[in-house]
Design a protein around this nucleic acid. Structure first.
Lengths: 223, 223
DNA sequence: GCTATCGGTTAGTGGCACTATCTATGATGG
DNA sequence: CCATCATAGATAGTGCCACTAACCGATAGC
């Protein structure tokens, strides 16, 4: 197909597709003449993936480029790149590089020991987690750090299911894409479910008392 | 304290603090003379909160303004505003407004019925979830939707712990802030833990076979 | 032939989160 | 008392990011 049809089928404007090709997010179509290129289903699939990671996953184009580059390299251990890219959030690094962060790193290491999780030292996710812990303490909500074990239990269960899904993919290409999509969209899915559960739990706990009161309706609903 | 000290203590540049005041994210200091204002611990706390929501939580200043406005209004049921603001991600809306989204909404409604979750129809989190489901199908990974129940189990557990934490706050001000911080940073915390768990589970499952092979090191790690 | 579309390139746009600069005023210390 | 410095407040500018517009020759297809 030509670029016009690709645009129509994907809902992405032609100039934007050209832009993605320039930025090496999308391979160029195969030239059939100096000014005519052919795009196949792979292009469409890749294009949809880019859009989903961008719009739903909240990744930057730079992060998407990194992830896709790793996904295209059959030698690449995906997890490292994904770990860095999937951080929708914390480059941190700057913020409070002080003793608070050091303490947080200790706490994370302790958690990993306690749970027997086998992960690389200095894994980027561990660094992210330390950043979050330090941030929580910094805003005076260090108490939330105590919930980490509950969160870790939940994360273990979810990760197991994730792996089951990924392993059901046969072709490497599909597998890697499953990893990417699962990591990024899975987080969005969990976040939405968590907010729904907040609402349900708060209704459930407060329905006996002050129905609709400001505490029940407001305060008890969130985190 | 004056603005200079506030800046030093928070690590936020003076012009940025002025900018936040202009944008009504931060209340102005109390004027002690036409060109001298006094800032208290509340200002510092608020400033730290803004920075954490921005840098760790990934919220936009506009979203932060919305959340803080609701938090400051004692009459406001927090959850609605929070739900909208805490979507780091999916305004969606546009994308595929077609039958796919309609089907996804149905699936979400069915999930809520199945689990007996008591949430408002058309809760923004439900809409987000439907967007994610539609997106997953759109990129050919509808299989991940089948994991929703596992995710929902985990979300229920986490939400229960979240509520326990929030309810331990006494003053409404602290409570609301706990909701905000917990919702936003809790998501970051869970995300990091999930990525760590991915690494652990993949190592655990594959350590018997091809240690370090591209599948074990790369593909099996994420999702 | 003739018009619409195409590939490729360069330049411009709008939004966001600041950052720089300026003016006048007032605090501060020797 | 005076020099120096920080401050409040305002306007304008910056840098990055994700596009979007405009243009220029080629074809494609009728």
């Amino acid at each position: 197909m030509r670029i016009g049809e690709l645009s129509r089928r994907s809902g992405v404007p032609v100039p934007t597709i050209k832009f993605y090709v320039r930025e090496r997010l999308l391979p160029a179509g195969e030239l059939t003449s100096p000014n005519q290129a052919d795009y196949g289903p792979d292009h469409e699939r890749r294009l949809r993936l880019i859009r989903v990671l961008l719009e739903v996953g909240g990744l930057s184009l730079a992060a998407i480029a990194e992830v896709l580059e790793a996904a295209d390299d059959p030698e690449q251990p995906v997890i490292r790149v994904l770990g860095r890219a999937a951080e929708g959030v914390p480059p941190l690094g700057e913020g409070e590089a002080g003793p608070e962060l050091e303490q947080a790193r200790e706490d994370v290491a302790e958690l990993l020991r306690r749970r027997g999780w086998q992960v690389d030292e200095g894994a980027s996710a561990a660094e992210s987690l330390a950043g979050v812990v330090a941030a929580l303490r910094g805003v005076g909500h260090g108490g939330l750090v105590d919930l980490m074990d509950v969160y870790a239990d939940a994360a273990e269960k979810v990760a197991g299911a994730d792996l089951d899904y990924v392993m059901s993919r046969v072709a490497r290409e599909e597998l890697v894409e499953g990893v990417v999509v699962g990591t990024v969209l899975g987080e969005a899915m969990f976040g939405a479910l968590r907010r729904l559960a907040h609402e349900d739990v708060s209704v459930r706990r407060y329905e006996s008392r002050a129905a609709g009161g400001p505490l029940a309706g407001g305060g008890a609903a969130g985190a």
